[in-house]
Simulated assay, not measured.
Amino acid sequence: MSSNNLDTLYRQVIMDHYKNPRNKGVLEDDSLTINMNNPTCGDRIQLTLKLDGEKVVDAKFEGEGCSISMSSASMMTQAIKGKNIEEALKLSEVFSQIMQGKDYEDDIDLGDIEALQGVAKFPARIKCATLAWKAMEKGLKEE
Results as ranks from 00 to 15, higher is better:
Ser2Thr: 14
Ser2Gln: 14
Ser2Leu: 12
Asn5Tyr: 11
Leu6Cys: 03
Leu9Tyr: 11
Tyr10Ala: 04
Tyr10Gln: 02
Arg11Asp: 10
Arg11Trp: 05
Gln12Leu: 12
Val13Asn: 08
Ile14Lys: 00
His17Leu: 06
Tyr18Gln: 08
Tyr18Gly: 10
Tyr18Ala: 10
Arg22Thr: 03
Arg22Pro: 02
Arg22Asn: 09
Asn23Cys: 09
Leu27Met: 03
Asp30Ile: 05
Ser31Gln: 01
Ser31Trp: 02
Leu32Phe: 06
Thr33Leu: 12
Thr33Gln: 11
Asn35Tyr: 12
Asn35Gly: 11
Asn37Asp: 15
Asn37Gly: 13
Thr40Asp: 13
Cys41Leu: 09
Asp43Cys: 06
Leu49Asp: 00
Leu51Lys: 02
Leu51Met: 08
Asp52Gly: 00
Lys55Pro: 03
Lys55Glu: 07
Val56Glu: 04
Lys60Met: 09
Phe61Ile: 07
Glu62Leu: 11
Glu62Ala: 09
Gly65Glu: 01
Ser67Cys: 13
Met70Lys: 15
Met70Phe: 09
Ser71Tyr: 01
Ser72Ala: 13
Ala73Tyr: 06
Met76Tyr: 05
Gln78Asp: 07
Ala79Cys: 06
Ile80Phe: 12
Gly82Leu: 14
Lys83Leu: 13
Asn84Phe: 15
Glu86Met: 10
Leu89Cys: 07
Val94Ala: 02
Val94Ser: 02
Val94His: 00
Ser96His: 07
Gln97Asn: 15
Ile98Asp: 00
Gly101Ile: 05
Gly101Asn: 04
Lys102Leu: 12
Asp103Pro: 13
Asp103Arg: 15
Ile108Ser: 09
Asp109Phe: 10
Leu110Phe: 11
Asp112Gln: 10
Asp112Leu: 14
Ile113Met: 15
Ile113Lys: 06
Glu114Met: 14
Glu114Asp: 10
Leu116Phe: 13
Leu116Trp: 04
Leu116Asp: 05
Leu116Glu: 05
Gly118Ile: 02
Gly118Lys: 03
Ala120Tyr: 03
Phe122Cys: 08
Pro123Glu: 06
Ala124Lys: 10
Arg125Val: 04
Cys128Met: 00
Thr130Ile: 03
Ala132Met: 00
Ala132Ser: 13
Ala135Gln: 09
Met136Trp: 04
Glu137Val: 07
Lys138Gln: 11
Lys141Asp: 13
Lys141Val: 12
Glu142Asp: 15
Glu142Phe: 13
